[in-house]
Design a protein around this nucleic acid. Sequence first.
RNA 1: GGCCCCUUAGCUCAACUGGAUAGAGCAGCCGACUUCUAAUCGGCAGGUUGAGGGUUCGAGUCCUUCAGGGGCCGCCA
Length: 581
Amino acid sequence: MNLFSEIRALVLAALEKMTADGKLPTGLSFDAVAVEPPRDPLHGDMATNAAMVLAKPSGRKPREIADELAASLRQDDRITAADVAGPGFLNLRLAPAVWQTLIKNVLEHGQSFGRSSVGAGQRVNVEYVSANPTGPLHVGHTRGAVFGDALASLLDYAGYAVTREYYINDGGAQVDVLARSVYLRYLEAHGRDVAFEDGTYPGDYLIPVGQALKEKVGAEFIDKGEQFWLADVREFASTAMMDMIREDLALLGVKMDHFFSEKSLYGTGRIEAAIDKLRAKGLIYEGVLEPPKGKKPEDWEPREQTLFKSTEHGDDVDRPVMKSDGSWTYFAPDIAYHSDKVDRDFDLLIDILGADHGGYVKRMKAAVSALSDGKVPLEIKLTQLVRLYKDGEPFKMSKRAGTFVTLRDVIDQVGADVTRFVMLTRKNDAPLDFDFNKVLEQSRENPVFYVQYAHARVCSVLRRASEAGIAVDDARLQAADLTLLSHPSELAVAKKLAEWPRLIEIAARTNEPHRVAFFLYELASELHALWNKGNDEPSLRFVQEDDPGTSQAKIALARAVSVVISAGLAILGVTPAEEMR
RNA sequence: GGCCCCUUAGCUCAACUGGAUAGAGCAGCCGACUUCUAAUCGGCAGGUUGAGGGUUCGAGUCCUUCAGGGGCCGCCA
């Protein structure tokens, strides 16, 4: 239901006919022919670059091709004007009936209007958050969570079969640190004096975990050596942390399809199997790496390690999978995990990582490329830092001092809807300023409220119409006589709605959910503009009390806007507001 | 030293992956509230897209050199 695709098909048909008539040479590729909204609406409703991209391969002048193409397109009922402009653009103007039909389409399809089949049911795995189970999620995680979740929803809407996944880093040394920290809290719960030294987590959030451990095992672990309790406490603590993280995610409205445990890779031969897979391809060897340049060479000693020949798949240097002491590096289980994803027959893998993991991108892509023989692409999206402010003053976080801002803090203070929307009004690879007070201002500077207000206004119109005795259920609105909608200001709104399916395809292709947020802002702006014109020109008001038929047509347009806003907000994970309070 | 990301209006950011005269909001100025919630709208002003070179009908977008900011660089995840 992408109007731009429909008109492009029309253009291509006309080009085929020109080819058949001998006006264009046979065998031309039309792939580069685009039909787009012109930057300036004065140019028309749609523009095509066909004449310009075909000029050189056909050996003809762009304006000649454009003239002939224009003559052909004018034959179609949907095209009311086709003018050649600039270097060879063909500007098209579409009949009002096209826009009227579009509004009807929105109402008939509801929130599915805009769903696309570009994903073609391809299976895509989106891995995001994947925070260590050592504490509550903080703001940095929040951005990754919001971005990954919105991207997953966007891809789903664009026709992909999406799996949302969280990789639990419960296998490394940091879980031992967690266990020792919980053990201290456990002793504390038994009335012992404890000291949190370097290498332990002093956060208060472990107090209830220590308490719970006491309730579970009583005094069993007191005054015992680590070998006696470490494994049990590790299990207990990481389970408790994951429960907490799941709650945090739920507060944000994030629900994973699958949690994958790193620990499940150890002692089961799965890491060995993945490395063997690479070894079979001749990509594992014993060797010594060059020292990294520009970084404390005094600490460097050459050591022989087991290396993955990632340079064969685009990396800059080969990467160690096993330390010199024979234990795995963190890279090894990651290889095994991604090997598992490849084995699960995904067509596309996407990892969402924090920007501080940027140095990790090439080696991971190399691993997936090697494991899948180049068949499964891995896309890695990095989310940049969140800079916190309060009243314009930077707000410093320190995990050590216990002053880090948790996801829960943010949700408590500003709510999930605002948090999500604000974090999606920035490209993922640009740093984000997040001011606790500004995001709560219900002002024009704050796009959340601007979009919410537009939705609420439509709800208000529906209520008001009902009170005036005008039927506004969806069935009646779909049956409304939309030929009554012909004012340019009204059609302008419909034209914006027509861009929605196209925008979805672009946003999905580029993996950029922020485009949805910006589109919603523009759509809301169209509605606000039309609304205010009703102040000066009563005939543009949605509710015409003495004319139910006209009211229904105008309200159908308003309703279509709210449907698309709802669909867009659903992708972003934001609840539409029925009214502003 | 190497790799990745960033640099667009005074400020915060867009720009449909190569299209027409680079767009919004904020801040500034002028205007619209006996209303369909003005949490909104209309208008004015604001630019050598960090700098230079290249590719072509056409570059904020692609290539290259340089400057500035951030991130990362074996046995931490």
